Measured scan of single mutants.
Amino acid sequence: MPEGSASLQLAVGDRVVYPNQGVCRVSAIDVKEVAGQKLTFVTMRREEDGAVVMVPEGKVLAIGVRKVASAE
Rank of each mutant, 00 (worst) to 15 (best):
M1E: 12
M1H: 14
M1S: 14
M1R: 12
M1G: 12
P2W: 08
P2S: 12
P2Q: 11
P2I: 11
P2D: 11
P2V: 13
E3P: 10
E3M: 11
E3V: 11
E3Q: 11
E3A: 13
E3W: 05
E3F: 07
E3S: 11
G4N: 10
G4W: 05
G4I: 11
G4V: 11
G4L: 11
G4D: 10
G4R: 06
G4T: 13
G4Q: 13
S5R: 03
S5A: 13
S5K: 08
S5T: 11
S5W: 08
S5P: 13
A6L: 10
A6I: 11
A6N: 13
A6V: 13
A6W: 09
S7K: 10
S7H: 12
S7R: 07
S7F: 09
L8K: 06
L8V: 09
L8Y: 08
L8D: 09
L8Q: 08
L8A: 08
L8C: 02
Q9G: 08
Q9T: 10
Q9I: 12
Q9H: 11
Q9D: 11
L10S: 01
L10T: 01
L10V: 14
L10Y: 03
L10R: 00
L10G: 02
A11W: 06
A11N: 09
A11Y: 09
A11I: 10
A11C: 04
A11M: 13
V12C: 00
V12H: 01
V12P: 04
V12L: 06
V12E: 02
G13E: 01
G13N: 04
G13I: 02
D14A: 01
D14N: 02
D14W: 02
D14V: 03
R15A: 05
R15T: 09
R15D: 03
R15N: 04
R15Q: 06
R15G: 03
R15I: 13
V16L: 08
V16S: 00
V16I: 11
V16E: 01
V17T: 07
V17L: 14
Y18K: 03
Y18N: 02
Y18C: 06
Y18D: 03
P19L: 07
P19E: 07
P19D: 07
N20C: 02
N20G: 15
N20Y: 09
Q21G: 15
Q21V: 15
Q21D: 04
Q21F: 15
Q21E: 08
G22P: 02
G22R: 03
G22A: 04
V23W: 05
V23Y: 14
C24F: 15
C24H: 09
C24W: 15
C24M: 14
C24N: 00
C24G: 01
R25H: 06
R25Q: 09
R25N: 04
R25I: 14
R25T: 11
R25K: 09
R25E: 08
R25S: 07
V26I: 11
V26H: 00
V26P: 01
V26Q: 01
V26E: 00
V26C: 00
S27W: 14
S27N: 06
S27E: 15
S27C: 01
S27M: 13
S27T: 15
A28N: 08
A28T: 05
A28G: 08
I29R: 02
I29F: 07
I29N: 00
I29S: 00
I29A: 01
I29V: 06
I29D: 00
D30W: 15
D30T: 14
D30C: 08
V31S: 07
V31E: 09
V31C: 01
V31Q: 08
K32I: 15
K32A: 07
K32T: 07
K32C: 03
E33L: 12
E33M: 11
E33D: 10
V34K: 05
V34F: 09
V34R: 05
A35W: 08
A35F: 09
A35L: 11
G36T: 03
G36Q: 02
G36P: 00
Q37A: 09
Q37N: 09
K38Q: 10
K38F: 13
K38W: 12
K38S: 09
L39F: 11
L39P: 01
L39C: 00
L39S: 06
L39W: 06
T40R: 14
T40A: 07
F41L: 09
F41T: 06
F41V: 10
F41P: 00
F41S: 01
V42C: 00
V42A: 01
V42I: 14
V42M: 03
V42S: 00
T43L: 08
T43Q: 05
T43V: 14
T43I: 15
T43K: 05
T43Y: 13
T43M: 08
T43R: 04
M44K: 00
M44D: 00
M44H: 00
M44A: 01
M44T: 00
M44Y: 02
M44V: 03
R45Y: 14
R45N: 08
R45Q: 13
R45I: 15
R46T: 02
R46K: 05
R46L: 03
R46I: 03
R46S: 06
R46N: 06
R46Q: 02
E47C: 02
E47I: 06
E47H: 03
E47P: 01
E47G: 01
E48C: 06
E48G: 08
E48V: 13
E48M: 10
D49H: 02
D49A: 02
D49S: 04
D49W: 04
G50T: 02
G50C: 02
G50E: 04
G50M: 04
A51T: 10
A51N: 07
A51G: 11
A51Y: 09
V52T: 09
V52E: 11
V52I: 12
V52C: 02
V52S: 15
V52D: 05
V53D: 02
V53E: 03
V53I: 15
V53M: 15
V53P: 01
M54E: 12
M54F: 08
M54D: 05
M54Y: 10
M54A: 06
V55L: 15
V55N: 02
V55I: 13
P56Y: 06
P56L: 08
E57D: 05
E57P: 05
E57V: 09
G58F: 10
G58K: 13
G58V: 08
G58N: 15
G58Q: 11
G58Y: 15
G58A: 14
K59T: 14
K59G: 06
K59V: 15
V60I: 15
V60G: 04
V60S: 03
V60A: 14
V60H: 03
V60E: 03
L61S: 09
L61C: 04
L61V: 11
L61G: 08
A62L: 10
A62G: 07
A62C: 06
A62P: 04
A62D: 10
A62K: 07
A62N: 06
I63Q: 09
I63D: 15
I63M: 14
G64T: 06
G64P: 05
G64E: 06
G64L: 09
G64W: 10
G64A: 06
G64Y: 08
G64R: 03
G64M: 08
V65A: 05
V65Q: 03
V65R: 02
V65P: 03
R66L: 15
R66S: 12
R66C: 14
K67L: 15
K67W: 10
K67V: 15
K67M: 10
K67Y: 13
V68R: 02
V68Q: 06
V68G: 06
A69D: 14
A69S: 13
A69L: 11
A69V: 13
S70V: 10
S70L: 10
S70W: 10
S70R: 07
S70N: 11
A71R: 06
A71C: 15
A71Q: 10
A71H: 14
A71G: 13
A71F: 10
A71V: 12
A71W: 09
E72R: 06
E72K: 09
E72Y: 09
E72F: 10
E72G: 11
E72D: 11
